[in-house]
């Protein structure tokens, strides 16, 4: 596969390490009320879609960017690649 890195252009997938569902960005706050349930859902519940999937890839043999790659799990077509940091900020994450 080829991942079109937003900063570096097309790179071979061998340069990357896969993590999984991009929902991992949405980590709950451990001090919140009901954190145990929220963390249970966050850590253990995953969709396994046949189709479009947003997932985290780490450019380990490259610039160490974490990327959110939108990939079709059936065809492996990649329709979007974003810096995970931008995605996290767009979700309201900061410090």
């Amino acid at each position: 596969m080829i991942i079109n890195h937003p900063l570096l252009g097309p790179r071979d997938a061998q340069e990357f390490v896969y993590l999984g569902d991009a929902r991992l960005i949405g980590r709950p706050d451990g001090m919140d009320e009901g954190a145990a349930q929220a963390f249970h859902d966050h850590v253990f519940l995953r969709d396994n879609p046949a189709g479009e999937h947003r997932e985290l890839w780490f450019h380990e043999q490259g610039d160490r960017s974490w990327l959110v790659v939108t990939r079709n799990t059936v065809t492996h077509e990649i329709t979007k690649v974003e810096l995970a940091r931008d995605v996290a900020r767009a979700l309201g994450r900061s410090k």
Binding site: V17, W66, A84, R85, V87, A88, R93, S94
Partner: peptide, 19 residues
């Protein structure tokens, strides 16, 4: 050494991007 570094990068970029 490698997995921890990867994990810290994840925390820095994905969880707390403005730190």
């Amino acid at each position: 050494a490698v997995p921890v570094f990867r994990h810290l990068e994840f925390c820095r970029q994905c969880l707390w991007p403005d730190m």
